[in-house]
C-alpha cells in the first residue's frame, strides 16, 4: 500500500527530534483525529539552518514529516512557504488516497513554524 520511499522515510525518518532554542515552532493536527505534527526550526538570515520534527500519527504522517523537513532544510523562508503537499507527495512517489491529508498536514506544519518565526521576529522563546 505504501511506496518504497514512504517505507524508507517511515523506517528511517530524517530530522526526528527537537531543537533547543528554536526560533520557530509550529504544531498542527490533533490527537482526536490521530495525527499531530510539531516542527522546530532554527532560522538564521531567513535561511532554515536546521529543522526537526516530532509526529504522533500513522506511517504516512511520519514519512511526510520526514520528507517535508528534508525538503525545506537549508532553504529560504520564502522557498519553504512555497512547499506544497503535492510536492511532498510526489517526492514520496505518491500516497494512498486516504493518506493525502497527512501531506496537507506536513505543508501546514512547515507553514505554522514559519508563521511563528515571523510573529516572534526572530526571538528565541526561553522555556
Amino acid at each position: 500500500m505504501y511506496s518504497e520511499k514512504v517505507m524508507d522515510h517511515f523506517a528511517h525518518p530524517r530530522n526526528v527530534g527537537e531543537i533547543e532554542n528554536a526560533n520557530a515552532v509550529g504544531q498542527v493536527g490533533n490527537a482526536k483525529c490521530g495525527d499531530i505534527m510539531k516542527i522546530y526550526m532554527d532560522i538564521e538570515d531567513n535561511i532554515i539552518k536546521d529543522v526537526k520534527f516530532k509526529t504522533f500519527g500513522c506511517g504516512a504522517a511520519i514519512a511526510t514529516s520526514s520528507m517535508a523537513t528534508e525538503m525545506v532544510k537549508g532553504k529560504s523562508v520564502d522557498e519553504a512557504l512555497a512547499l506544497t503537499n503535492k510536492a511532498v507527495m510526489e517526492a514520496l512517489d505518491g500516497l494512498p488516497t486516504e493518506k493525502i491529508h497527512c501531506s496537507v498536514l506536513a505543508e501546514e506544519a512547515i507553514r505554522s513554524a514559519i508563521e511563528d518565526y515571523k510573529k516572534r521576529g526572530g526571538v528565541v522563546n526561553e522555556n
Binding site: F10, A11, G34, G57, C58, G59, A60, A61, E98
Partner: peptide, 22 residues
C-alpha cells in the same frame, strides 16, 4: 498511533491488527 505500531511490527515479521482510524 496504531498503524505505526503495526508497520514496525511487520518490519519485525509480526502480524497483528489495530483499532486506529488509519
Amino acid at each position: 498511533e496504531g498503524e505505526s505500531i503495526l508497520m514496525m511490527l511487520d518490519m519485525n515479521n509480526i502480524a497483528a491488527s489495530s483499532g486506529s482510524a488509519c
